[in-house]
Simulated assay, not measured.
Amino acid sequence: MRGGHPYLVLIAAASTLVSPLCCHNVRSEDTRTQFNGSAVDFDSFREQFHRTYAVNGEAFNRRRLHFQDATKRHAYLNAFSTAPQSAKYGVNRFSDLSQQEFRDLYLRASADGASLFSGQKTEGLPDTFDWRDKAVVAPVQNQEACGSCWAFSVVGATQSVHAIGGSQLELLSVQQVLDCSFRNNGCSGGSTVQALNWLTKTRVKLVPQSDYPYKAKTGICHFFSQSHGGVAVKNFTAHDFSGQEEAMMGHLVERGPLAAIVDAVSWQDYLGGIIQHHCSSQWSNHAVLLVGYNTVGDIPYWIVQNSWGTTWGNEGYVYIKIGGNLCGIADSVAAVFL
């Protein structure tokens, strides 16, 4: 991944400002911070997000320390976000997780090497484009505490391309990919390219979600007859668009929503706005669905659907500045063909 930033080093240093040994006896009312604009403490966070760990128990003290570390990260990250449209960071449902816990639970995608894009960029692109305007993008889903982002990304691209072809938009089964893509590891992580390889080589049809519901845990693969309704993937491409994000815009317009692998370490604290800084730890770790772009305002940005529910970010979406390969958004981008 390119365009690194000393984000993790500085955050690690900030986290050591408060010794774990000194904080077990600190009262929660002394850990006040700015909770998205209003003063609240750790107790208010627990109430807001329905945390049930016992007061002053081991879990309570450990989570409170993670919460305190998070507030330090928010102050650091927001110091860069001074423009009106800039990303904002603050308390959300991930704020009592350590950074390692967050990675282990939610950032479980791996990136296979993608070939550098060698095609031509598309001329005459619109200033804005959003596949949601065509009613071919399914609602934001929630992967929950399962590292299944890679499966959501692949299924999201497939069901959108199917709808673009004239079929009714229908949720397809993420659980089927999670259970049956044998070169991947279910909730323990996977690769979008490996999942697409499995789909194209086996010609397995993705069945409707209603036939194979999501359970947020890895299960035994269920097989369906070839006569069963579903969507088969004929082919796919995976490219590295580093330094060629304008060409990537054309790819999005021509091919449909794209499955992308990104670095989402700093997304643990994201509340909304356009990410422009501190979004590269040199490690691709999360899969998302790229659905559009906007180049009209002062800050051009990608429109990216995430799989952490609608209460995260911009109603489940994250906006990433176009240019500079922020968050590694251009490193591995896959298009699906049906």
Rank of each mutant, 00 (worst) to 15 (best):
70 A>G: 10
89 Y>R: 02
151 A>F: 15
245 E>K: 00
213 P>K: 01
101 E>I: 05
4 G>Q: 14
149 C>K: 07
57 G>E: 08
163 A>R: 09
20 P>A: 07
135 A>K: 08
244 Q>W: 01
254 E>F: 03
104 D>S: 15
154 V>H: 12
65 L>W: 09
234 K>E: 11
171 L>M: 13
112 D>K: 15
303 I>E: 12
265 V>G: 08
82 T>G: 01
319 Y>H: 05
136 V>W: 00
302 W>S: 01
128 T>A: 04
164 I>E: 04
181 S>L: 10
77 L>F: 11
152 F>V: 11
242 S>Y: 03
239 H>I: 02
32 R>F: 11
45 F>I: 08
270 Y>I: 12
193 V>W: 00
91 V>H: 03
24 H>E: 12
295 T>N: 14
217 K>N: 07
338 L>D: 04
258 L>S: 05
237 T>D: 11
62 R>L: 09
211 D>V: 01
187 C>V: 03
102 F>A: 08
117 F>E: 02
267 W>R: 10
253 V>K: 13
229 G>V: 14
24 H>K: 13
97 L>V: 05
277 H>V: 12
94 F>M: 09
165 G>N: 14
50 H>S: 15
73 R>L: 09
219 G>L: 04
313 G>M: 06
155 V>K: 12
145 A>F: 11
212 Y>Q: 00
279 C>Y: 07
238 A>V: 11
304 V>H: 05
186 G>L: 04
